[in-house]
Computed example of a mutant assay.
Amino acid sequence: MVDSTGTTPDPHPHEPHSGGLASRLNWLRAGVLGANDGIVSTAGLVVGVAAATTETDQIFTAGIAGLTAGAISMAVGEYISVSTQRDSEQALLAKERRELRDEPDFELEELAGIYRGKGLSEQTARQVAEELTAHDAFTAHAEAELGLDPRALTNPWMAAFSSAVAFTVGALLPLIAILLPPVAARIPVTFAAVLVALALTGSLSARLGGSRRARAIPRVVIGGALAMIVTYGIGQLFGVSGI
């Protein structure tokens, strides 16, 4: 069906057909997971320290140290990972450029063969390959052969910054929750706040990934609860033995 503008409307506008949207969803999903890591690791740390001591300064110092170390670790790890991936992608793209320069006829036949393999007829595959080559041979081959968009390679600095921010945002919640309430309420309040936050991140990650919330939420919440229970037990053990 063609609309008044002469184009065919998308029958499923809610589905992410564009590569740009898919990329943004991946970034958002990574951000949610980074925040989840910040929540769980910092919650486990501050609950363990709070079980061993009631000194606010010690809890605050441990929490800030854990937040800082975690954010830096996430940023460095993401930077290294994305840089390695980007180097590999750039090497593949450079190889493709050389092949297009040195063997253009072979590359044209290769591109046509890819589209024949996707189900197009010999004539149609050849026509598609010729038209794409005339328009932008490099991009056409990069996308068809390598599955890469040379204009949208991941930036390692942006990945590192995003990971650090996501972890920090997540880590702030248990840190605030453990410091604001009275001493007697610190651990129960932190447990409750963390479990609610984990339920929200589990729900959001399930929605972004298209999976069932009934599975994702308990998995995340139970994992976070176990982490806090274990570190609380360790804090109690060392707190009592230190008296």
Rank of each mutant, 00 (worst) to 15 (best):
S18W: 05
S23F: 00
W27F: 09
W27R: 12
L28V: 00
A35R: 03
G38P: 12
T42K: 10
G44T: 04
L45S: 10
V46L: 15
V46N: 15
V46F: 14
A50I: 08
A51S: 13
T54F: 13
I59F: 06
T61C: 00
A75V: 13
V76C: 02
V76S: 14
V82G: 02
T84A: 14
R86M: 14
D87G: 13
S88K: 00
Q90S: 14
A91Y: 00
E99W: 02
L100Y: 07
R101T: 15
F106A: 09
F106M: 01
E109L: 11
G113R: 02
G113Y: 06
I114T: 03
R116K: 00
K118F: 13
G119M: 06
L120Q: 02
T124P: 03
A129H: 06
E131D: 15
H135E: 13
D136W: 01
A137P: 11
F138E: 03
A140Q: 04
A142C: 00
A142N: 03
E143D: 12
E143V: 04
R151N: 06
A152S: 13
L153I: 00
T154Y: 02
T154E: 15
P156S: 05
W157I: 15
M158T: 07
A159R: 02
F161L: 14
F161A: 04
